[in-house]
């Protein structure tokens, strides 16, 4: 695997008061699925906006596929390579008709019309929204709008997609649809950076980076990161419920692995535990 995004000692400040990003170095491999966690104001969105040159580092360097984001000549290429989906579905839809919105980036890139027509259909198919092609964008549900926003990004055929809390304003069904689409895109080889505050969503990534106050607190596989439940809770993050349960059991002296991410894993651990009662050595455990 090769690096597709590189942050080298990146610091960023909006004004002189405070560094929002503090000397961040981070390498993201091609085809990876990286979840970014962190409490509100920890700098996640600021970090994300560095990936496609919406923000430029105050110090240090960001490169995308070898292109320096601070070089103006690279701007168009970088924005095409790295697409971005935001939190509020209403504020990122530009056109009144679905197909026209999906075509927006292509119009800007000067893609010929025949090619545009093909790519719009292809992108709408990829997010399962082709039957809404001619619909008014304002009449769609939050989840559907978000899928249109994703289609608008896919149409550029990007190598990287950055999702900045795409499910924060959605109902459970909309969340599930969006998460499934991101996973599918990643399987097709697109590098995914996925900012979220839902631990369950982060647990599905290949790598989790936790930001705290503009610094990387911990970085590794979901199993590794969620093992450090204590550290995460200390910076105000909740670990997934199943991991939380394991953490509590450990505190009661029951030996269970901490890196349990979903319900199935949790059930299997608990069944094993109940089958081998010897492993329970805590006297205060009452079933």
């Amino acid at each position: 695997m090769s690096a597709v995004i590189e942050f080298q000692n990146v610091s960023f400040r909006y004004n002189e008061e405070k560094d929002i990003l503090k000397n961040i170095s981070l390498t993201i491999e091609k085809g990876d699925f990286v979840a970014v966690l962190g409490h509100n104001g920890s700098g996640k969105s600021t970090l994300a906006k560095h990936i496609n040159a919406i923000l430029l580092p105050s110090e240090g360097k960001v490169s995308v596929d070898g292109l320096d984001t601070s070089d103006d000549n690279n701007l168009a290429a970088i924005r095409r390579k790295a697409g971005m989906v935001f939190q509020n579905p209403d504020n990122q839809i530009i056109a009144t008709v679905v197909e026209e919105d999906v075509a927006f980036a292509l119009e800007n890139l000067g893609v010929p019309r025949e090619e545009m027509v093909r790519r719009v259909d292809e992108s709408l198919n990829a997010v399962g929204m082709i039957e809404f092609k001619k619909h008014a964008t304002t009449k769609l549900s939050g989840g559907q709008k978000q899928r249109i926003a994703i289609a608008g990004v896919i149409a550029m055929r990007p190598d990287i997609i950055v999702f900045d809390e795409p499910t924060a304003m959605l109902d459970p069904q909309g969340r599930e649809d969006v998460v499934n689409i991101t996973k599918k895109l990643n399987e097709q080889g697109i590098t995914v950076i996925y900012i979220t505050h839902y631990m369950e969503e982060a647990a599905q990534a290949k790598r989790v980076v936790v930001l705290n106050d503009g610094e990387i607190l911990i970085d590794g596989t979901p199993h590794y990161v969620f093992q450090n439940a204590g550290l995460l809770t200390s910076v105000g993050l909740d670990v997934p419920q199943s991991t939380s349960l394991m953490f509590l059991l450990r505190n009661h002296g029951i030996k269970v692995p901490l890196a349990v991410l979903n319900e199935e894993e949790c059930i299997s651990v608990l069944t094993d535990l109940l089958n081998t009662k010897e492993s329970i050595n805590g006297s205060d455990f009452k079933g």
């Binding site: 906006k49 496609n52 919406i54 168009a76 924005r79 095409r80 697409g83 971005m84 935001f86 509020n88 209403d90 504020n91 990122q92 530009i94 927006f104 980036a105 800007n108 890139l109 926003a149 608008g152 990004v153 550029m156």
Partner: peptide, 15 residues
């Protein structure tokens, strides 16, 4: 909204 939209448009290569 205007701020968000401007960013979203830039992200989609609007110049």
């Amino acid at each position: 909204r205007a701020d968000d939209l401007a960013t979203a448009m830039e992200c989609r290569c609007y110049t």
